[in-house]
Design a protein around this nucleic acid. Sequence first.
DNA 1: TATTATTTTTAGGTTAGTCTAAATTTTTTA
DNA 2: TAAAAAATTTAGACTAACCTAAAAATAATA
Lengths: 217, 217
Amino acid sequence: MQTFTEENYLKTIFFLSIDIEVWVSTNALAESTNTRAASVSDMLKRLAEKGLINYQKYRGVRLTEEGERLALLVIRKHRLWEVFLAEKLQFGWDEVHVIAEELEHIRSERLVEKLDAFLGHPQFDPHGDPIPDADGQMPAFRYRKLSEINEGNTVIVTGVSEHSSAFLQHLDKSGIMLGCQVKVQEINRFDKSIHVLIDNQQTVFISHEVAKNLLVK
Amino acid sequence: MQTFTEENYLKTIFFLSIDIEVWVSTNALAESTNTRAASVSDMLKRLAEKGLINYQKYRGVRLTEEGERLALLVIRKHRLWEVFLAEKLQFGWDEVHVIAEELEHIRSERLVEKLDAFLGHPQFDPHGDPIPDADGQMPAFRYRKLSEINEGNTVIVTGVSEHSSAFLQHLDKSGIMLGCQVKVQEINRFDKSIHVLIDNQQTVFISHEVAKNLLVK
DNA sequence: TATTATTTTTAGGTTAGTCTAAATTTTTTA
DNA sequence: TAAAAAATTTAGACTAACCTAAAAATAATA
Ligand SMILES: [Mn+2]
Ligand SMILES: [Mn+2]
Ligand SMILES: [Mn+2]
Ligand SMILES: [Mn+2]
């Protein structure tokens, strides 16, 4: 049985080891969990003790099978609750993450499965992220970033890699949402900002910074 | 901002001061929260410090206005989540309490209000308990216990004063649920057990212990 | 009312999770 | 490859929430 804090560490380690394929460093964890490196070292000892991570001093850390299973379960709960909040309670996609950060720790296997069924076994959360199944299986999609698309090409927005409400609200204002069609009309050679045509309707200006966080197919 | 534990203490004090109109004792709290009296003394100092209770050493404790407001908000959340679990996710009324004990601590005003709207502003939870409104107002119903009903009378089951799954499953087996009609056919003079006719269909035997925990009108 | 019993509080200790400051190890660079 | 820089761990402290054992206050009883 893990504490909320332990679950959050596992989740953070999981996401960090996707980005950087190697061992996760103490400093990276400190950064992501908003704590100090000393506190992380402390916690890593505890998680290793429980068999949830492989921890080598001064080297870094990786999840064990059990640790990864638990991380994926928390991610499953997080994303299912986000779907519930967005679809059933009409929350905006910019609001759901903060609340799901709390709901993801509710402990009840039956609750997760019943929630999943109630929502119609959704495959993706409101940000386009895939929802792991009850066994922790999750499709490893290869997304491309909008910033990698060449002039003249048309793609579909399938997700975002940044979940802050500031970013999502900015997308709302620009009229960009999941599933919309985006045609790259012109790329500025100087700052890599782009003009895109959305759903064949309005043309919008998008900075490189934003384009990097838009996932498309 | 209160911790989960503090919220649980407030809720417990609230319920104990309904039962016994006077000051709530340290021992009563220790009993209800499954802790030792020494730990309760500790916590009471902290809650008093925060202005959530009036605490007089060796006397006992009462909620302040703010403390009562917070207690009622937690109770509101608890009961709304119980309705969600029972009505939307098809949990049995014997299963919802344990899960709601966790969900009641999720902090988001907007979530409570949206959940309330999604459920259609329910007035009662699956056990027949009234749900406080957003301002903490809650109808103070006077229920009678089935054990106080005289032979020959017919009443409607409106609630239960015991929420253990053992008790609720026992009621399920006896075919007793909220809203059903119960006629007291015969009261045993020796052990006060009774024979009741349910919805004019089957006759069931009910012990005094069970009858005391059935609320009727 | 004096003594005993009960209730409650205080004293001192533990664990999880955090912190700062100092020590140690690893990495980088000259 | 030796010195400097960066990353990491250890040492020592703090808070919330609990514990046991002992002391103090209140209540009950002879
Ligand atoms: Mn999220
Ligand atoms: Mn998401
Ligand atoms: Mn309940
Ligand atoms: Mn209830």
